[in-house]
Write a protein that binds this DNA or RNA. Sequence first.
DNA 1: TTCCATGTTCCGCA
DNA 2: TTGCGGAACATGGA
Length: 264
Amino acid sequence: MPELPDVMGFERYLQSCALHQKIADADVSDDRILKGISVRSLKRRLKGHALEDLHRRGKFLLGRIDGQGWLVLHFGMTGDLDYYKQRQEEPEYTRLRMDFENGAHLAYQSKRLLGEVGWADDPEEFAADRDLGPDAYELSADADAFRERLSDHRGKLKSTLTNQSVLAGIGNVYSDEILFQARLHPATSLDSLSGRDLENLRRTTGRVLRVCGRHGGNVDELPSHYLLPHRERGAHCPRCDTKLKWTKSGGRSTCHCPKCQSSS
DNA sequence: TTCCATGTTCCGCA
DNA sequence: TTGCGGAACATGGA
């Protein structure tokens, strides 16, 4: 489920277990996951070095490898990280595995191969290359910047929030939660929002990302009045018990409460 | 067997 | 120019 809050969880996870450990070896079991770097080159840059620092930008997690540059991880729809001690614990869909000198392993797994493992010389340069907007969580902390960024756009709320070049990190699932909490209808066009609505959206975005990020994307741990624990077909609004409505656009499904989220 | 799925990218159309 | 919607990608699970 990797969107920004989940990647926050991955960042904390790596921070707690994988930092400053020399990488003895690395193995790529399916090179379709690599973008812009060969297996050989990746291995060369990892081997004998250590992960020294982490940087998250939207849904991307970048890890600085001492003296080499930045390892880029994107998790697609089904990516995950796993640090483990015994080789036989290796997860089934591991695509990149690092073996540390201390005998532990780190697996980047991706069941559907929709993520990517890549390389960057510099995080800012990387973000510019990929046309990534500012990180959604950081942007939500700055009222002026948030307003300016969004006022350039006229599209619908849902598609703008999930547009990574406008702000990076929000995907299909968390945009539903943000709009639910902000009581805004996903199809509302941005230019119809008042300054007050926009400020409400900013605060809500920050709060939802913070709260969800704290749980590292574990939906079951969220407060019961959150939408996500109830986001399934046939479910009812946790606030007013109205049946939740599902719509579809661009191949992605959106869930909202027809009563709480007024269309404007 | 068919449909659906949290990711991105590309294309054609308004 | 901008935004939208659909299809494609690869694969598994219900």
